[in-house]
């Protein structure tokens, strides 16, 4: 079936029905026009994934492989998979990144709890598109264990790398600090055209998007710290009223 994902027409040739249901919110109304890419999973890829994901259904495993294959083909189409959570605040997108266990979902949940006009675009694996005005972040069907996200796109205004700390602090990162951290959160395809395109997209992402290192605890002050630095707005104007 053909799906509209990250502004592309993607033909997914799945064998298991798992993916039909998983991607149904992205099913294209137009099943006949040409597509941007086609993806399927080879037996070799399936078996390799099955070894590392023991105990999961065949449909789940095929579904993981399908997304990986999509993401390896999209850099030449100006798009990049980013391992991050994308939150929207009032029409702008902010990416939160960190190794698993650094509190990404805790911090983004605090934003959702305390701030008005906020929603999750994708909690785990959004796709970014380079445009001449900067990057757009897209929700996709693949959005992590907590399944938080929606079928939407939003201009990306900041990258926020998280580290746990007893006190809250935030500082801007310089490009060389950003590249090392970003490379841990992307997928590098093996074919030359897509590998080169990936490196160029990461370079553009660093040039276009301000990046910060947030060292934070799990208090409301942590939200104030990242929110004010990234948006330039006063926290009090954005905070939900009590009971909201």
């Amino acid at each position: 079936m053909i799906y509209d994902i990250a502004g592309l027409r993607i033909n997914i040739e799945n064998r298991c029905s798992y993916t039909d249901n998983f991607c149904k919110a992205y099913l294209s109304k137009d099943q006949t026009s040409p597509v941007d890419l086609t993806t399927r999973v080879t037996m070799e890829e399936f078996l390799a994934e099955k070894e590392t994901s023991e105990g999961f259904s065949d449909g789940y495993i095929e579904n993981i492989c399908l997304y990986r294959n999509i993401c390896k083909q999209i850099p030449t189409l100006n798009r990049l998979l980013l391992h991050a959570a994308i939150l929207e605040y009032d029409g702008n997108g902010y990416a939160f990144l960190g190794r698993s266990g650094t509190g990404k979902s805790t911090h983004t949940q605090l934003w959702l709890n305390y701030l008005s006009k906020t929603r999750m675009i994708n909690g785990d694996k959004p796709i970014l598109q380079a445009t001449d005005k900067g990057f757009l972040a897209y929700g996709t069907p693949w959005m992590g264990k907590e399944n938080l996200g929606c079928n939407a796109s939003i201009p990306l205004k900041g990258l926020c790398f998280l580290e746990q700390a007893p006190e809250n602090s935030i500082r801007k990162l310089i490009p060389s600090e950003v590249s090392a951290r970003l490379f841990a959160q992307i997928l590098l395809p093996q074919d030359e055209a897509n590998a080169v395109a990936t490196l160029d997209l990461v370079d553009r992402l660093i040039m276009y998007t301000p990046a910060y290192l947030l060292r934070c605890n799990i208090s409301e002050e942590a939200v104030q710290t990242s929110f004010e630095e990234m948006t330039g707005l006063a926290y009090e104007t954005a905070r939900k009223n009590k009971g909201e």
Binding site: P175, S176, S179, L182, V196, L199, V202, D203, I206, M207
Partner: peptide
């Protein structure tokens, strides 16, 4: 492949 990313050669 060699590329400059964020001002650094990789």
């Amino acid at each position: 492949v060699l590329r400059v990313v964020g001002g650094e050669s990789v």
